[in-house]
Simulated assay, not measured.
Amino acid sequence: MTTMQKCTFAEAVGAYIIVEVGPRTRNLSVGRDIRFLEQYLLDPATNPFSNKPVADVTDRDILAFLVSLADRPAVARLCTRKIRAFFAWAMWPSRRMQFGLEINPALYILPRHIAGRPQARLRFLEVDELHAYLAAAATLKPHQQAFAEGLALTGQRPSDLGRMRWSELYLDRQVWAAKRGNAYTARVILSDAFISKLAGMRSELPANAGDFVFSATQGRTPLLHLGPMKSALSEKMDSILQNAPGSSSCEWRWTDLRRTVICKLVEGGLYWKDAFRATGSSMPEDVRSSIRMFGTEAGIREALNRYAAALDAMMQKRGFNSGSDS
């Protein structure tokens, strides 16, 4: 490594990714770790000190950035851990001299100082809220609508679904070979309704479209920066719910939607293990240690089809009131 005393924080983190994070080939989450670092630490739109010389970054800079994420506790805690891990790596004697670091500015900043200790969240969307979500999704731009409806049909993580590629899809077999990390591919079962939606989208693609399924740039880049879309969804949902008797505005997160899909699949007859598998979710220890084996792909697809049919019946019964008359 050459002398890097004048390098920016982003450049130093880039070196950290190349030297330390990338080679962790046995870590199945390395791909997700790198994407997280790129989104939250390297992007100037997210991290205000990314272009500041790394030797000039202070604990005040770090703390101000992390506090700005406090309304997303899980992200704030993970950012804290990633920044601490980077500076611990950068403070190794030889690297410390190359970066021009004298102290570790993240040494005394702990995840619990930023967002408190993790609290179990059991929130899921009620029927009125799920209806409002889908009705609100119908008012978004076409690529955002398809993505929002895809999340409701699959229960996948937004960061995973946003990176879905046409080259990973086998529409005839109704399977998505989702890249999850280095040398790891998850086989995701898809419902008839979602496959039909994907087939319709594919038929309308221009000849020069890129590989990403959900994109604002005709497939050339993935759909990842979801803050504005989430805000638009929430605002429209509040408008819709204000018109519903006994309903009120709701605070929700993407994880609440995923939890809702899991619960609906279980209510529809799927075992917990298979519901977590269907949505690509991490299994709680009590579910993981269950002696029951996984169900068949056909059984999972049938459950997803029943759930999709229930969503369609709900929307047909309640209508697609977008709240525009409020």
Results as ranks from 00 to 15, higher is better:
113 H>A: 14
113 H>R: 05
115 A>D: 01
76 A>L: 11
103 I>Q: 10
108 Y>A: 14
77 R>M: 13
84 R>Y: 06
112 R>W: 15
107 L>N: 10
106 A>I: 01
120 A>L: 10
87 F>C: 03
122 L>N: 15
87 F>D: 01
126 E>K: 15
124 F>T: 10
86 F>K: 06
127 V>P: 00
99 F>L: 12
91 M>N: 00
68 S>T: 03
80 T>K: 09
118 P>D: 11
116 G>T: 01
114 I>H: 04
125 L>S: 01
98 Q>P: 00
86 F>R: 03
100 G>F: 01
83 I>Y: 08
112 R>K: 15
106 A>V: 05
103 I>V: 14
96 R>P: 00
76 A>G: 11
115 A>R: 07
88 A>W: 01
88 A>E: 08
90 A>S: 10
68 S>Y: 06
105 P>F: 13
97 M>P: 00
83 I>E: 02
95 R>G: 05
102 E>Y: 03
68 S>G: 08
79 C>I: 05
74 A>F: 00
109 I>S: 02
84 R>H: 08
80 T>C: 14
70 A>S: 14
78 L>E: 13
90 A>L: 02
102 E>H: 06
116 G>W: 10
86 F>L: 06
123 R>S: 08
113 H>F: 08
103 I>W: 07
93 P>Y: 08
79 C>P: 02
124 F>V: 13
75 V>G: 05
127 V>R: 09
